[in-house]
């Protein structure tokens, strides 16, 4: 036993009892305060979050200084270097994970399907109909002209391809209201119920929905037309 006494160095290199007592008292204080703050709802929100994390870091500092005695090794202090570099990695891993996943969560969480459609149309430029992608229509395509005059629609039938356009031209002095579907069964086309075309103006729609679609004049249910959209 005297051997052990001889070999170990109880002097300056390692802390003695007082250092442990100080560390213990400090660590108790740094535990009780955040616990009290949380349990009694003393402060709220971001302030409490920052406060308790601050106390955790203080607590860690106490443990490292008074119990692990880091920093008391002789120079060069590889232990301290290694600890600091590890701490850097820890910060990167934790902060970056939270940051990245928060953004991912923010961008990937739909509130409603309408929000998704809106986001896709506005941010991504992908036209949507009922939540289904229609494919963006870019470049030059054929534009068909449909003339509205009195009770006539000419031509009353158009064969077109996806992404072609139809221009409804109003040659009358009054506005025309073109409704999709039949009078009895109104439908939507490209998300629209009705096209309002004021006097002597035109309105162009992009054919982004496949199939045969009917339309009629709202003021005159017998004035009808249709167009068939086939894939390119």
């Amino acid at each position: 036993m005297s051997n052990a006494k001889h070999n170990t160095t109880p002097k300056a290199e390692h802390g003695a009892t007082p250092s442990y007592v100080t560390g213990f008292i400090l660590s108790l204080i740094f535990t009780i305060i955040p616990y009290y703050l949380v349990a009694n709802h003393v402060i709220a929100g971001m302030a409490i979050l920052v406060t308790i994390l601050g106390f955790a870091l203080l607590q860690m500092a106490v443990q490292i200084i008074f119990f692990l005695h880091l920093g008391r090794q002789k120079s060069p202090n590889w232990q301290l270097f290694f600890f600091i570099s590890t701490f850097g990695i820890i910060l990167v891993v934790v902060v970056a994970s939270i940051w990245i996943m928060h953004h991912l969560h923010h961008n990937m969480t739909p509130v409603t399907t309408a929000d998704v459609a809106k986001r896709l149309v506005e941010n991504e430029g992908i036209p949507q109909i009922d939540g289904k992608k229609t494919g963006a229509c870019e470049g030059v395509h054929t534009t068909y002209k449909v003339t509205l005059k009195g009770n006539t629609i000419t031509p009353s039938h158009i064969d077109a391809h996806l992404c072609d356009r139809i221009s409804f031209i109003n040659e009358d002095k009054d506005a025309h209201y073109i409704m999709f579907g039949s009078f009895e069964q109104p439908r939507q086309y490209g998300g629209e119920d009705m096209l309002t075309i004021t006097n002597r103006r035109a309105k162009t729609i992009v054919l982004n929905e496949l199939g045969t679609h009917h339309f009629h004049d709202h003021m005159n249910a017998r004035t009808t037309g249709d167009f068939a959209v086939t894939p390119n």
């Binding site: 036993m1 005297s2 052990a4 009892t17 442990y20 560390g23 213990f24 660590s27 108790l28 119990f67």
Partner: peptide, 23 residues
């Protein structure tokens, strides 16, 4: 938490004893 903190403290006191060779 308090139990573990105390145990960390007592481990420290044990180490003081070990360095003094006090079994």
């Amino acid at each position: 938490t308090l139990i573990l903190l105390t145990s960390s403290f007592t481990a420290g006191l044990g180490m003081v004893g070990a360095r003094l060779g006090n079994k």
